[in-house]
Amino acid sequence: MKPGLAHLVSTGVGPFYDGAAHFLVSFEEILPVLALSLFAGLKGPAGGRRLIAVLPLAWVAAGSAGLAFPSAGAPALGTTLLLLASGALLAWDRALTPLGVAAAAGAAGLWAGFWNGRAMAFAGAGFLGMLGSGVAALLVAILAAALATAFRSGWRRIAIRVAGSWIAALGILALGWSLRG
């Protein structure tokens, strides 16, 4: 499997929007954020708030550090494992304290943000591109966490968990692709 960030979407309106657009059209970037945000939302408003506060900050902080080390993209295996872990966490729907949610969001934000920063530097989008990705991640996190918070009961909770199983399944397949090379 090719590195996910090998090229950048060009919106024509500047690196900030290029970075944001890239996040929104990159499955390997948006899906873990989506899964973790839905998971946090299922844990209630407190979990959602922690994620919204921690994930984008971790993303931008690690992304700023990553700008110093330009690279074409994240290692496929790491990206894949993040996809698998975030999907499995959502499908499992394990009870987790808001602090635990924050820890998971922080770890994911640090990993994804760092590699996003490296890729943005490699693509010439720099800090603005990385910031655009971080803001897009924040927007998706807010919307997904709010959605899951509102849909915490009945069949809608099940539907959200099923979506997590799909993301985990995608991670398993992506792992196969990355091992096959």
Binding site: G171, G176, L179, R180
Partner: peptide
């Protein structure tokens, strides 16, 4: 997906 994984590797 696990079956697909087995096929891929």
């Amino acid at each position: 997906a696990f079956g697909g994984f087995l096929g891929l590797v």
